[in-house]
Design a binder for these strands. Sequence first.
DNA 1: CTGAAAGCGCTAACAC
DNA 2: GTGTTAGCGCTTTCAG
Lengths: 334, 334
Amino acid sequence: MVTLKQLAKELNVSISTVSKALNNSEEIGEETVRRVKELAELYNYRPNKVALSLKNNKTKTIGVIIPNILNRFLAKVLFGIEREAAEHGYNIITCISNESLQKEKDSLQLLGNGSVDGFILSVAEESQINNEVEHFKNTIKQGLPIVMFDRVAHDVLCDKVIVDDFDATYNATKSLIEEGRGRIVFISNIDDISVGKLRERGYNKAILETGRLEPLVLKVKKKDDHPKKIKSFFKKNNSIDGIIAADSSSGIIALNTAVNFGLKVPKDISVIAFASKSDSNHTLPKLTTIRQHAKIIGAHAAQVLISRMQNTLTEEDVKTKIVKTSLVKNKSTL
Amino acid sequence: MVTLKQLAKELNVSISTVSKALNNSEEIGEETVRRVKELAELYNYRPNKVALSLKNNKTKTIGVIIPNILNRFLAKVLFGIEREAAEHGYNIITCISNESLQKEKDSLQLLGNGSVDGFILSVAEESQINNEVEHFKNTIKQGLPIVMFDRVAHDVLCDKVIVDDFDATYNATKSLIEEGRGRIVFISNIDDISVGKLRERGYNKAILETGRLEPLVLKVKKKDDHPKKIKSFFKKNNSIDGIIAADSSSGIIALNTAVNFGLKVPKDISVIAFASKSDSNHTLPKLTTIRQHAKIIGAHAAQVLISRMQNTLTEEDVKTKIVKTSLVKNKSTL
DNA sequence: CTGAAAGCGCTAACAC
DNA sequence: GTGTTAGCGCTTTCAG
């Protein structure tokens, strides 16, 4: 990489002259500016990012800590963050906590040493289970703002972007009840995390509100053979006529299993799942989905963090933004 | 963040004394070392990463340019890269080219200004279609090593990590032929990229080698309604008894469609797709898959790049590593 | 109009 | 054993 020093030497002027010329300072003579810019162009000069960061005490970089990049929703949020960040001239450094508290702490520490100006993160499963939040608080105390999305720690005072999980599941369940379904099961493989619990509560509320239906819940664990578990559940409960799935995988498997049992979808049974558009293509009939608008969540988180870092937000007014889901009806419901 | 300067002031010693003490230099007295370390601990001192980068002319950061983070395979590679990088003390800055040549160029430029020590990337679709490689060559000329994976530009002299796409598809097709299948269709929605073409060629070779079978190819475009397109193809070609899918989505949709047509899988028709383990759970029966070992590819790419950046590899011996796929037989084949 | 100098935080060669 | 100094690449104030 060419430096100002090298340009200055070659042009027989001082470093500061070159710097000013390139930054269109009024101070420098027209002719000099021309010469400097020409040579800079020739050598494809770019200001060294690291030097700028040191000088300005700003890296123009956002640290993103994602629990699991293989989760489609989280990957999509990352996509939204990256795009929004890029538009504002920010880069993102990505760390994957892999649902581990330790890795989450490490990432915060590691990037908190000047590598980034702030964080966007979704809390790791282990951290949520242990209700561990000190590391977040420390980071904020250090002066690095955090924006949490989806899985948030309510005890930490910071900006948040969340989904209306409770309402969405409540409404979806209600819509099945209104279809006349009487034996609706809630299937989830995300029972351990905050949003999973919220979704279950939304389901429960809708069911109990009827005064006649009973909640029926199937929790699938990471280590289980998911198709097998769901299949045997169907066998034991053969009157099921409705499914609310807290995650896309459970939804897809449940629908396929139902079809395999000879049930007509949606005549005999309706299925709704938290899932993306492409997921809905992976079942026949197409899956009715609750869409979380992951990209919008990501974009929003990035916007809030960038405002925060540029101090256009006042210290105290941390905000929680709720991004509403949409129920997209396809052919797996009446 | 606390700096050496502040510690020095508080301890009434010089900055370099503090620095040396923290770096366990032999020069400094035992007692001083103790005092310094104590205070550093108290203030939770961490050396400023940016200053170190400037000093050492090394960022310990890898730039990763991914065409599409929503592609499960690519996301998994990213996972592998991140993990391997973290183990070696490297961070990764992620850019998403979104299959755009311009964004790819921009990312290379932007991060090439000192933000990263090297790149790992998979070539964007648009770049492959236009066969554009100058931006890669320029980056390498600048002294920043590149490791390409999966979709590589063969005209660029750099390390590469690829999959045995041709052989894998050839072997998978052959296995269907050996099952006695006579009307095998190749379905792909990745026709535009290098690996898609390789897979098609592998399929073709196996088909043509028989001397009696005819290739039958269905290409699905991004803008198509995938399930619809595949369905109508099935209608027109009702003697199909084998499917090789170049991507997981096509495989899943094709299998579901076949079932929907009343075909028994694998009695009447066999299906094999390039896909991951979790994808195979999303069909009933479980999908037989060609596994690409994405995480291993990522880890390997990171290893090679790190060696390259630490100059433990000699300038000239660029290597292409082929990570072999595995054919994992499930219930969608005989 | 141009240049010298200081400083961002750190390390290391070289005094003392 | 401890301190001074220079330098990584850049911007910016202040002198000339």
